[in-house]
Design a protein around this nucleic acid. Structure first.
Length: 1030
RNA sequence: GGGCAUAUAUGUCAAUUGGUAGACAGCCUCCCUUACAAGGAGGAAGUUGGAGGUUCGAGUCCUUCUAUGCCCACCA
């Protein structure tokens, strides 16, 4: 089979996804094993308006690695995809489109037509992100794809709403809320973000005190712009009319006539326009400056109102002037204080961010910022503006449109979270659930947040979303019901109008773990459920079917998401699942790090520094990208580097070429796990193999002969050459490590182990070691083999026949195939592409649960690593051989011996080492590019030789007649001696420390002693060598 | 203001329960050796942010300082 010399990722990507999907490999139904354990992950639904970014790619890779491995292990695996209707984002998107295309607003076309438009938009563009997700190669079950506005998910939402309402956990009430004047909707606290404003101002406003006395009571002595104490200047008196400011403009430029007797209370504010809604001024009760004022009133300028001066501990004496204007209708803290002091709430703003009628005639209809300007102008005219300070501050803005939000009082629907919060907290306390990876800092963040949880505003003034299932009769009485018919029944009239608002998008997402599995709330033990399910026959049927999913796959095993979603989603999912299905939504929570740009900055649209995963896929391939993401995923943030992907692209190419090499030398060979002692499913004793299919071409006979029971595996391997025992040991050890790592969500560890096993062990050493033996042009090689035999080489190699070559080929290709399986969860496309090309890869290699499926590596049994095949002796012996070869190469390089120059190598070693080297002489000769190797008890070489010593004390020498550069060789030896001496001194010092010897573990002390002894031997030998050169 | 994280080679990052620091990229030397130049062989490069402490032994544990980043709450 001819393969190109370079791996073409795009080609492989094109070849497999469709087939995987169409063959049903992604569905849990592919699993034939009735008793299989299940494994499930639901994907965090991306916004329907979204497009794929690196954060998604990272999460999806993590989830897919987990799912693919579990599937290969025989778990009945469900990885469920879906999207979120994303209320505000989508509505904004379609509103914009409507504006662009038809120059209309949603109001112009009305609610029904608008939502129709949104659905159209969804059908047309909503699939964009899903197609991008396909490209990632993730093994999600598209037949179960969910959308938060799907019928049954919507039913679930309504049922949950009704239930909470009936329990008294949902209520409607006017309270202070975050309001986006641009989107004209309420926002939950979590949808508000902070934005720094460096050029903010702090305005100091003077409020005249009724029945005022002598002097200003500003927190500090205030001065006007000319440096004069403002209050002292005051002459005359200010009438209420003047203070109301209605005629202020005609007095521009003049000092207000302020009587000497008037005192002022100065307040500081960043939002002067809200003063129009002030209903009190507050001071700290302990503040000596204002003690006498408590209980008095001030004349509120620009209005005709007189408001009280109250005392509240909340006021910070240090900040501003120590006196605070209180606007209960436009500030959360003031709102609270208003409740405490029974203050009236005066709303001075409209919902679009303009001032309203109650702000006064001059302000009515003005934009809030113009209102602010005007307030300041008027205060200036009245000479009541004490000063304006520059003030850096943080403004709350709408997460979506970045408009500065207003806080105002509005009638909304709320969920009381107390009961659900307590359920979640109790579970956390008692069982430390959920288990976060990484454990820090998320566990604490989660708990702290829950402890301070407040009621959740769930209504949104939008049209796109789940309309609130509440109806009002003509008297305005509310009926919460599953549907209109039921509401009519409750109300006794059909003259009902449904609440205009929709629910917060998260009110559907928090049900995601179970609503996607078919739960629609009909099973809730509520009085209405039975009646309803009879009404809707079809949904009852669906319900039955889907309940199977719920039973099988809920709780899900793990949720993988970003840390900013912990509050929005993770914690709410915990609460919802506990509350509505009485169980946990998932076992583990894996929080990924953030992918940053190459400068370590957050990627963002506004900065334009985002890296588009699709471009990276095009450039380096999906598999290389997945390796990069998985290889970096420790939960820590990491800076994106193209170089990193490039190295995994190279790795993919390495795998491609290693396979290419094996295939070039595969004649007569076939993949056969038994040949390397790997038992087919050790846990597969239910006779699935026997019953399924038998045909003369399958290799099962061989496999079964080799491996009737797991205990035989060792027997198969015992007779093999050391290089095979070594690589088999490495393979199994790697498999073990990979599994352990993935069980702990240590993806980068798994990637690292796989990378080095494949590249270093398999390619750099194993292929080179067996190259001659398996190579097609093996005639001359077998000559080398037989030479080895004569010297008493390994009996297995001795056969030197065609059949031994085929066996060797079978082994290497089997080891390769096992490696591909291990790599598959990370690099699905490449591994499938190659697996399909290997000889004799068929469904028989599948995990027992999938024997009837079409052949695919996706369903192959995932290697778990067989302890009995881990051979430490073989590994350490091979290590000696590698050290020898490396040493010789090192000498060659440093003495600048040309690759084409053959050398002879003399080795002085003890019997044991002697034997090992002797048995592997052929490989040593080849890999060290030597033509002769002489192993003896001692060295008998000319002085003109380069020398070295191995860790175990064995000496090597390479005669270099006439070629040796004595000074250079002396320098080389001296360097080696220096390094050893340094290490030796350090260790000797340790040994001379009595405390170390007595307190450190005996093994540790012994190890140091051995090392010191080694160093002594090596140093001694090197010194002798050095002497002989003088 | 509160909480948390990070600081290791030139860069990006690793390093089980404390045992004396590794990978990849880059750099230097040599090699287009018939799987792969997206390759092979060899090599140089780190007082683990600073200062104390615990310990026989600290990148790892404790204290403190410095720098950076994130989250939460927000003083009007």
């Amino acid at each position: 089979m001819e393969l190109s010399t370079q791996y073409n990722a795009k080609e492989a990507e094109k070849n497999h996804y469709k087939r995987w999907e169409e063959s049903g490999f992604f569905t849990p139904e592919i699993n034939d094993d009735e008793d299989a354990e299940t494994y499930s992950i639901v994907i965090p639904p991306p916004n329907v308006t979204g497009s794929l970014h690196m954060g998604h790619a990272l999460q999806h890779t993590i989830m897919d690695v987990l799912a693919r491995r579990k599937r290969m292990l025989g778990f009945r695996t469900l990885f469920l995809p879906g999207i979120d209707h994303a209320g505000i984002s989508t509505q904004l998107m379609v509103t914009r489109q409507l504006k662009d295309e038809e120059n209309k607003t949603p109001q112009d076309i009305g609610r029904e037509a608008f939502t129709e438009k949104v659905w159209e938009w969804k059908h047309k563009y909503g699939g964009t992100i899903l197609n991008q997700i396909r490209r990632e190669g993730i093994s999600v079950d598209w037949s179960r794809e969910a959308f938060t506005m799907d019928e049954n998910l919507s039913t679930a939402v309504r049922n949950v709403f009704v239930r909470l309402y009936e329990e008294g956990n949902i209520y409607r009430g006017a309270r202070i809320v975050n309001w986006c004047p641009n989107d004209e909707t309420v926002l939950s606290d979590l949808e508000v973000e902070d934005k720094e404003k460096k050029d903010g101002k702090l305005y100091y406003l003077q409020y005249p005190i009724k029945d005022g006395e002598q002097s200003s009571v500003s927190g500090e002595q205030s001065e006007d712009k000319g440096g004069n104490p403002t209050v002292m200047e005051g002459v005359g008196s200010v009438s209420s009319e003047q203070l109301a400011g209605s005629s202020g403009s005609e007095k521009a430029g003049r000092s207000p006539k302020v009587s000497e007797g008037v005192r002022y209370l100065t307040v500081a504010t960043t939002r002067p326009e809200t003063m129009l809604g002030d209903t009190a001024v507050a001071v700290n009760p302990n503040d000596e400056r204002f003690k006498d004022l408590i209980g008095k009133t001030v004349e509120l300028p620009l209005t005709n109102r007189e408001i009280p001066i109250i005392a509240d501990e909340y006021v910070d004496m240090e900040f501003g002037t120590g006196a605070v204007k209180i606007t209960p209708a436009h500030d959360p803290n003031d709102y609270e204080m208003g409740l405490r002091h029974n203050l009236s709430q005066l709303n001075v703003m409209n919902l679009d961010g303009t001032m309203n009628h109650d702000a006064g005639e001059d302000f009515n209809g003005l934009d809030r910022y113009k209102g602010r300007k005007l307030v300041i102008e008027k205060f200036e005219e009245l000479n009541l503006l004490e000063k304006i300070d520059d003030y850096e501050m943080v403004l709350p803005v709408c997460e979506r449109c970045k408009t500065v939000i207003e806080t105002l009082i509005s009638e909304q629907w709320w969920v009381k979270m107390d009961e659900m919060r307590d359920m979640a907290l109790e579970l956390k306390r008692e069982t430390d659930y959920p288990r976060f990876t990484p454990h820090n800092p998320h566990t604490k963040v989660y708990t702290d947040w829950l402890e301070n949880l407040r009621d959740w505003t769930i209504s949104r003034q939008l049209w796109w979303g789940h309309q609130i299932p509440a109806w009002y009769d003509e008297q305005g009485k509310v009926y919460v019901a599953k549907n209109r018919e039921e509401a009519i029944k409750f109300a006794g009239t059909s003259k009902l109008t449904q609440d205009e608002d929709v629910l917060d998008t998260w009110f559907s997402s928090w049900l995601w773990s179970f609503s996607t599995l078919g739960w629609d709330g009909e099973t809730v033990q509520s009085p209405r459920s039975k009646v309803q399910s009879q009404d809707e026959n079809s949904s009852t049927l669906d319900f039955g079917l889907r309940t199977q999913d719920l039973n099988a796959f809920h709780p899900t095993n793990v949720i993988v998401t970003a840390r900013e979603i912990i509050f929005l989603w993770v914690s709410r999912m915990v609460m919802a699942a506990l509350k509505f299905v009485g169980e946990r939504p998932f076992d583990d929570v894996y929080i990924t790090g953030t992918v940053l740009d190459e400068n370590g900055l957050r990627m963002s649209k506004s900065k334009g520094n985002g890296v588009d995963p699709l471009e990276v896929f095009d450039k380096y391939g999906v598999d290389a990208t997945r390796m990069t993401l998985a290889g970096s995923a420790t939960g820590a943030n990491f800076a994106w580097r193209d170089e990193k992907v490039e190295s995994y692209r190279n790795f993919a190419n390495k795998i491609w070429n290693a396979t290419r090499f094996c295939l070039m030398n595969a004649e007569g060979a076939k993949v056969d796990p038994g040949s390397i002692g790997i038992c087919r499913n050790p846990h597969d004793s239910k006779g699935v193999i026997e019953d399924n299919y038998r045909n003369p071409h399958d290799s099962r006979a061989v496999i079964e002969d080799n491996c009737r029971n797991p205990n035989d595996s060792k027997g198969v391997v015992d007779g093999l050459p050391i290089s095979d025992r070594w690589i088999i040991s490495r393979l199994n050890k790697t498999a073990k490590h990979v599994n352990e790592a993935l069980d702990k969500y240590a993806f980068h560890v798994a990637v690292d182990k796989l990378y080095h096993f494949f590249w270093d062990d398999f390619c750099d050493w194993y292929i080179e070691l067996v190259k001659d033996e398996i190579s097609s042009a093996s005639n001359e090689q077998s000559a080398v083999s037989s030479k080895t035999e004569e010297k008493g080489g390994n009996p297995t190699v001795m056969e030197g026949t065609e059949s031994s070559q085929i066996e060797a080929r079978t082994r290497i290709i089997t080891i390769l195939e096992q490696s591909l399986r291990l790599l598959h969860p990370f690099m699905p496309y490449l591994t499938e592409e190659l697996w399909q090309k290997l000889p004799n890869t068929n469904a028989d290699l599948h995990n027992a649960a999938y024997r009837s499926a079409d052949p695919t590596i996706m369903l192959a049994d995932f290697p778990v690593g067989d302890e009995s095949l881990i051979d430490e002796k073989a590994e350490s012996e091979m290590q000696l051989i590698f050290e020898l070869i490396t040493k010789i190469r090192n000498i060659r390089a440093e003495m600048q011996i040309k690759p084409s120059d053959k050398i002879s190598v003399h080795i002085a070693a003890n019997d044991k080492i002697h034997k090992i080297f002797h048995e592997n002489e052929a490989q040593i000769l080849k890999l060290a590019r030597a033509n002769k190797i002489i192993i003896a008890g001692g060295l008998d070489v000319p002085d003109a030789s380069a020398k070295g010593v191995l860790t175990n004390g064995a000496e090597i020498a390479i005669p270099l007649e006439g070629l040796i550069d004595f000074p250079k060789e002396r320098e080389r030896l001296q360097n080696q001696i220096n390094k050893l001496v340094e290490e030796g001194e350090r260790l000797s010092k340790q040994l001379s420390n009595e405390n170390f010897v007595s307190k450190a573990p005996a093994e540790k002390v012994e190890a140091v002693r051995e090392r010191v002894a080694e160093i002594e031997t090596q140093t001694k030998t090197l010194n002798e060598n050095l002497e002989s050169l003088k």
